[in-house]
Design a protein around this nucleic acid. Sequence first.
DNA 1: ATAGGGTTAG
Length: 606
Amino acid sequence: MRKLQNQNPFFTLPSTCLSRQFKPSYCHTKAHFIQNLQDCRNFKSLISTHSNILKFGFLNDTFTTNHLINRYVKLQKINSAHQLFDEMSEPNVVSWTSLMAGFIDAGRPKMALWLFGKMHESTVMPNSFTFATLVNACSILADLKTGKRVHAQVEIFGFQSNLVVCSSLIDMYGKCNDVNEAHRVFDLMGFRNVVSWTSMIAAYAQNAQGHVALQLFREFNCLMLDRPNHFMLASVINACASLGRLVSGKVSHAAVIRRGHDSNDVVASALVDMYAKCGCINYSDKVFWKIPNPSVIPYTSMIVGAAKYGLGKLSLEIFEEMLERRVKPNDITFVGVLHACSHSGLVDEGLEHLETMYEKHGIVPDAKHRSCVVDMLGRTGRLDEAYSLAKSIQVKPDEGALLWGTLLSASRLHGRVDIATEASKWLIESKQQVAAAYVTMSNTYAFAGKWEKVHSIRSEMKRNGVYKEPGCSWVEIRDSIYVFYAGDVSLCARGSEVVSLLRELERRMKEKGYVGGSMGLVFVDVEEEAKEEIVSLHSERLALGFGLISMPKGMTIRVMKNLRMCRDCHEAFKLISDIVERDFVVRDVNRFHHFKNGTCTCRDFW
DNA sequence: ATAGGGTTAG
């Protein structure tokens, strides 16, 4: 019987048919059962087909059982799939790989790796599908060590030039933050397609190297192999966002519209985020309201975007709307909500959200949420509460860096040398952001007029070989990018005007009830790198009667311009762009060459 | 049976 099956895999007669002397009909063929399996849309019909397959003896057939396993996986019944696999007499490479992919789908990538270990003990050889699946598991786990071991196996088994395996390797190295290794794989590929290019671009975009991502995108377009698709454009827009490159972002947006990808939810949320980070919250808003049924991510992008502009009330309104439309918030949404409260002085609302996020929405507050609240309390000067909250939070090193860094800057802002000392002590002892901790501590002492302490910190830094890279900020005006380094203002022809403008802004802020430290105009008479705060045009302290607004690097002046906050900001913008144009031409923006020729305008959108 | 995209506090 078995022999017969092997000879004629599609039209064999199950033993039951023979014994009852059935006439063979299509209803009892393998092809029929496989067709049946593909039609199974629910668990119940699958169970029934499964029992028919069993009844007609096809469970001995690996090909049929593999289909059955895949159907269980598709209907999210991984345990049934696993059980079925265990009962197989001769699982082949497809059975093994299907089950691995199934465990990945079910959110258990470690199980896929464990299965590979088991497969290794069997006589079945892995193929390229198996390796692509395994690499994918490592990518999800961001497990570089295992990823490298799998990569070694890929080489041993000779799949190092397989397109899919290489694309997944690039992705895996990217997710593990090893872009160099990702690029090495990319370089060694004999043939590349849109997917491999996208993996490479995304790896750079996700690892704070947006300029390389954009460079690769230009190369891809020059090669004219293929058109960029929505996957690629989403990554390119992400790169523009991280660089604050509004012009490039708009060009990409135009490409999105031309290629008809503007209804794609993922692309739209990348655009919402990009415009927000480039200082155009009004464009974010336009893109956002065009999304038919926004999922949690575009909602979160919009909440975070509005929060960064000090539009805390708007953030909270969007959050409410999201809840009304039954979109479930996630942990990042709550970071946005708390951030909004923090930057708009909505302290009570923020505390309320932290208290109720679990019982109302099932999201357990973790270190990042509590850090937002520490920031919120710290900003408004409730340093003692912020400090005791900080002490109560269990953190991993990277979370601690953020938490204690937050507390340190709040302490500096409010001149709390005592708490600043504790916070910088934590950072330095944990070897987290050591240079920044030293500089901020030194600035706190400078603010308090304790110059001896300032000098002793400076000598300590020297002794320990700690060097702080000067902070910088940049702005895109028309086609050029201008970079400001901390300390540059004194080198600038109209630096004194900037300084007096900042002093004036500060005076008016205080008039409007701003509490907190100076605008960062403490000209510390120490080394250059200590003048962290001098050009603090990206500082939240330019908020002016709107509560406290943070302006991340790269969105500096445009933010002020588009905020329509007050006349003062417009004046500041005019003055600063004037200075920038005359004295600070750093470099021309790398244009998107392929989009030149006037084909690309955003007119069709606006 | 296998590959690629978007949201995270200072």
